[in-house]
Write a protein that binds this DNA or RNA. Structure first.
Length: 661
DNA sequence: GCTGGGTGGTTCCTTGGTAG
DNA sequence: CTACCAAGGAACCACCCAGC
């Protein structure tokens, strides 16, 4: 069950420089001006584009171009540059081996990778645009088919970007057709300032439009989103989908799998890309720690409206609440009571605004407000959220953790959690018995040293999320990184690919397996059914087995004997082999630093994992010891994030709540 | 049998600002 | 003219059942 190795998006890059320069020439263009006037356009203008394999920019002042060796040795680049406006401001240099080796690793890798071209017969796959590599997929086009005409109005692509730390980033980018210009905001940046792209049907790629060109508006795209109902739209490509091969290929990891295969096929002479793996040191599997059935406190429902309807409304809330927390005593009451859990019914903001009443909403640690207009009594999710918030508020009031049994963690020391909010620091101390204490830490004369020290910690890295201390002064600092974990995409791809193939085994092979798996009676029953099947395919075969346990038995037997995959089972216990990088809580040590990541709950996973698991780094402050491993169970709760594991220890939630009041 | 409502934390998509 | 970074905020998820 313990995962051995986990891939991360950090790339291990090997470049065969001498082979690269045997086949290609790399030219660096730069300007003495502030920027290159035509930037990416230059290559198109000069006609060099015909043989330029790829471009990558360093910044706006210089860029590298990969040329075929034969081409560049036969062309007088000077003469080409003379032809263009301001070409004399632009200088270039054909790089030798040493100079090539000096290019930053992420830039040279990106340059080589950018050179993979789309095969002519495929529509929109790889596209080197303005120094970037976009991966396209026809399933991510937004097309309208009115008036017998197919109009692509959005092209959603995945940018394959190797960041300065040589980590792979897969960024979603949306190109919108200019026909949508009425629903775009050009107040901050004029439409004319955006680079324009056009879809070229002959090459099936996007390319920049030259200033001299006239392209009709319905084939012009810019990198910008449209606005719908006053808010900006957002495109989304799920991180991983293993429902079937098609959905997999549409997901980020599926797209990644495809491009890595292409890179291996076409560029293996020059480049080897691997993801850095890491050994997992510590794993915590999800288990439910908070149970609504255990909740047995008094709840008061307070009527802040007092009209004909509101009392009835509260009564219905009472009925619904009773179902969720059967062991609590719920009363409709006139006034709140400091010693109970108060839920107060009021109107929402717009109601008070509309009727020019004073809004009675006052944030309070004793009262959870609900609004008549927005709160749905029959929503279990919202009722649960209310109860959960009440418990947390009550815990903060009473200075005692009760939402889960803190003493069950068997801590032997106090833990101190700290976060920064604007210029102040806030601390929460929790004793082994769950007693808590909050503290706002402002700068004053007496604590200046400690305050300055905290500021130093925070100023060193802007991405710090929180710090933890034990009571003997060990400090661990937690920051979000740009890294995420990568699942076993090759295995997933291979299994889904096999699953999607036509059936290759014969009926008699299946019958043979059925006979080995089931007793005589059952086997012969299935045998007649299988023999009489008219359409011999995986679906029809699988439909013979009504019971999914029996279905799985046959699928596994056949896979073992013949290698044929009738159906994939990623969600069963094998998930911990292939998908563990996306599941539950893990920590590891790498190159003298400590890291952790939290995925989705392993039990009962769905077929889509919409987001990556972000890796967080734990920095050990000065001479401190690494203490965070003991706190990993504090993420093993699903009450903070409504069904999902929380990514930060749950006391951080307490701290943020306390700051609000 | 399928869709959608409802919750808030978190991720990540988009944009703007600034440096080179 | 583009890379890089940070800020802001939309969309996502689970879970479960009402309502079509």
């Amino acid at each position: 069950m313990l995962m051995q190795l986990c891939k991360t998006n950090k790339l291990v890059i090997q470049i065969n420089y001498s082979q690269l320069l045997t086949d290609y020439s790399i030219v660096k263009f730069s300007t003495t001006e502030n920027y290159i006037k035509y930037g990416a356009l230059i290559l198109d203008e000069v006609g060099l584009k015909l043989s330029a394999k790829s471009i990558v920019f360093e910044r706006g002042k210089s860029f590298y171009v990969l040329f075929d060796k034969n081409f560049i040795s036969n062309i007088d680049l000077f003469k080409q540059l003379e032809k263009i406006e301001d070409g004399d401001k632009l200088s270039f240099k054909i790089l030798d081996l040493n100079e090539t080796k000096k290019i930053k690793q992420h830039s040279i890798t990106q340059l080589v990778v950018n050179s993979i071209a789309t095969p002519k017969h495929e529509r929109l796959t790889y596209n080197n645009l303005t120094g970037k590599l976009y991966l396209f997929n026809t399933n991510h086009l937004r097309i309208s088919k009115s008036k017998d005409k197919e109009q692509i109005f959005k092209i959603i692509g995945l940018e394959f970007y190797i960041d300065p730390n040589s980590c792979l980033q897969l960024n979603v980018k949306t190109f919108s057709n200019l026909l949508l210009n009425k629903s775009m905001d050009f107040s901050k940046k004029k439409m004319s300032a955006y680079p324009k792209y056009t879809f070229v049907h002959s090459t099936n790629t996007l390319r920049r439009i030259l200033p001299s060109e006239k392209v009709s508006i319905d084939n012009q795209y810019i990198l910008k989103q449209s606005i719908k109902k006053g808010t900006i739209e957002k495109s989304n490509i799920p991180f991983l989908d293993f429902s079937n091969l098609k959905e997999f290929k549409n997901s980020k990891i599926g797209i990644l799998n495809d491009i890595l295969n292409t890179i291996n096929q076409k560029l293996s002479n020059y480049l080897q890309l691997d993801f850095k793996g890491t050994n997992i040191d510590h794993t915590i599997r999800h288990s439910n720690l908070f149970d609504f059935n255990n909740f047995d406190e008094d709840i008061l429902l307070i009527d802040g409206i007092k009209d004909d309807y509101s009392n009835e409304y509260l009564e219905s809330i009472k009925t619904e609440l009773k179902k969720i927390i059967p062991n609590s005593r719920i009363k409709v009451s006139k006034a709140e009571d400091k010693y109970s859990f108060n839920i107060k019914l009021i109107h929402n903001k717009s109601f008070y605004l509309k009727y020019e009443h004073k809004d009675v909403y006052k944030p309070s640690l004793y009262i959870q407000h609900i609004t008549l207009e927005d709160f749905k009594t029959n929503s279990k999710a919202s009722l649960k959220a209310i109860v959960k918030e009440l418990v947390i508020k009550n815990d903060i009031n009473k200075n005692q953790v009760s939402i889960i049994d803190w003493s069950s963690f068997n801590f032997e020391n106090n833990w101190i959690f700290g976060i920064r909010d604007k210029t102040d620091f806030y601390f929460l101390t929790i004793e082994p018995n769950g007693k808590i204490e909050f503290e706002k830490f402002e700068s004053d004369l007496f604590n200046q040293n400690e305050y300055d020290e905290l500021c130093d910690i925070y100023n060193e890295n802007t991405n710090i999320e929180f710090i933890v201390k034990d009571d003997i002064g060990n400090v661990n600092i937690i920051t979000r990184t740009n890294n995420y974990t990568i699942p076993e995409y090759q295995k997933i791809s291979s299994i889904l690919e096999k699953e999607s193939r036509e059936i290759s085994i014969t009926k008699s092979q299946v019958i043979n397996a059925v006979n080995q798996v089931f007793d005589k009676e059952k086997a012969s029953e299935y045998e007649t059914q299988i023999i009489s099947l008219e359409n011999w395919n995986k679906d029809s075969l699988l439909n013979c087995f009504k019971n999914r346990i029996e279905k799985k038995k046959v699928v596994e037997k056949i896979q073992k004997d013949t290698g044929e995959i009738l159906k994939s089972y990623f969600r069963d216990k094998t998930r911990y082999e292939i998908l563990d990088s996306q599941l539950d809580i893990h920590s590891f040590k790498q190159d003298n630093s400590y890291y952790y990541f939290v995925g989705i709950k392993g039990k009962g996973i769905q077929q889509t994992i919409s987001r990556a698991s972000v890796i967080r780094e734990i920095t050990v402050y000065k001479n401190s010891e690494y203490i965070f491993d003991k706190l990993l169970p504090l993420m093993n709760v699903d009450f903070v994030k409504n069904g999902d594991l929380t990514v930060l220890p749950f006391p951080i939630k307490f701290l943020r709540e306390w700051i609000k009041y």
